[in-house]
Design a protein around this nucleic acid. Structure first.
Lengths: 214, 214
DNA sequence: TAATGTGAAAACCTTCACAGCT
DNA sequence: AGCTGTGAAGGTTTTCACATTA
């Protein structure tokens, strides 16, 4: 009963295309070939064409892709043409930095509520977001139409908090805690974990440290 | 002249094992099977065994892996048994949050210097790190033995800054700017980009929004 | 008995190469 | 002439399944 099942790797690349096309549009480019897009993103033209082919036929043979049109189509496919509401859980240093991060809003990701376990924090404001008690989470998620939860609590609490979010209807989790939480089928989780990134980087750096033999 | 070439996907998974094993060690677990490790990480036991087999034979048949020994071996393989020095470029809101992030130091990633283009910032301190002028970058990288650069500058400047770091001998880049910079062969880059993560998440959330038909 | 380590098979993803359209 | 869209080929990664060993 499913569609032709798009590989997840492909879905993960679409935002890269969106970003590159957005830049190209501001540069005044009207038409782009898979070749040009590929050289900007360091990818093969074939991969770009194949990726797009999972969703439809967006180009013109002999010509390329209309930048504005392709961008619009990709934004529709990724559901970036609607506003997404997120809540933040955990208003410590990291949580505050996330609320103040200016990169989300321009992409139509709006943090509309914040929660913290610590009753000292409840009632204060971070930026212009009111910090609420965890007990208000269910009703707030419901009334504000929140579908994404951003988790910035200590590692030990992340699993519990995520389960709480999911139990209250939040289907997307952006997790900043350094753990790999389990989520039920139908929930989408993305982990932001700079330490893991560094820990795989050093595997390759190690080799270059040992170069320059006598 | 190369070794048996370990796939990058495998290297990227090793830190997950390190983290899980570290937790297990604190829980007092002495021996672990690929089965147990897999159920904690939601991976198949076969994948874990195959991954480890690229690097050697660490287990005992019929028994499993000694937690302490496997952890030690993995940390050695990833070069996590030495101290790594990093510098931060860009001391805006994001950069300040990164310096204050308490997750790096316990893993032996130390931010030992910070740079900013803005001469107003130069000479001030963020936490206990002195903000230096960009012109001091070459000598500082050299004298402090910095091998990792953390980039938290605006998107428009990221490529330039990264080239500057690489030109001065920095081989590892942790990039927080929302761009996919090009780096020369032999340089390792990892991008931290929460917006990209959200933009691929919404593809899957879209479907669940449209459920519940009449 | 219980679990590793590993060739072989299966699944998955990328690249090729070209028919077909503009 | 130029570039897309796509089956088929090629390559990579995962999983299977079992010989082996504690």
């Amino acid at each position: 009963m499913r569609g032709p099942e798009v590989p997840e790797v492909v879905v993960v690349r679409l935002p890269l295309y969106v970003r590159a096309l957005t830049t190209m549009l501001t540069e005044g480019l009207e038409v782009v070939s898979s070749q040009q897009l590929g050289s900007r993103l360091l990818m093969t033209p074939a991969q770009i064409r194949k990726d797009l082919s999972y969703f439809g036929r967006f180009g013109k043979q002999g010509r390329g892709y209309n930048v504005r049109f392709l961008l619009q189509e990709l934004r529709r496919i990724l559901a970036l043409d609607i506003e997404w509401r997120a809540c933040l859980v955990g208003v410590g240093r990291l949580g505050r930095a996330i609320i103040n991060y200016p990169g989300f809003a321009p992409e139509a990701f709006n943090i509309v509520a914040a929660f913290d376990h610590d009753e000292e924090q409840v009632g204060t404001k971070v930026g212009d977001i009111l910090v609420r008690s965890m007990s208000e989470l269910p009703s707030t998620v419901e009334s504000l139409g929140i579908s994404i939860g951003i988790v910035a609590v200590p590692a030990t609490q992340a699993q519990r908090v995520i389960e709480h979010l999911v139990a209250n209807g939040v289907r997307g989790i952006l997790n900043y805690a350094p753990v790999a939480p389990k989520v039920p089928e139908g929930t989408v989780i993305r982990n932001i974990d700079p330490v893991l990134s560094l820990q795989s980087m050093t595997f390759y750096l190690r080799e270059s440290l040992q170069t320059t033999p006598a």
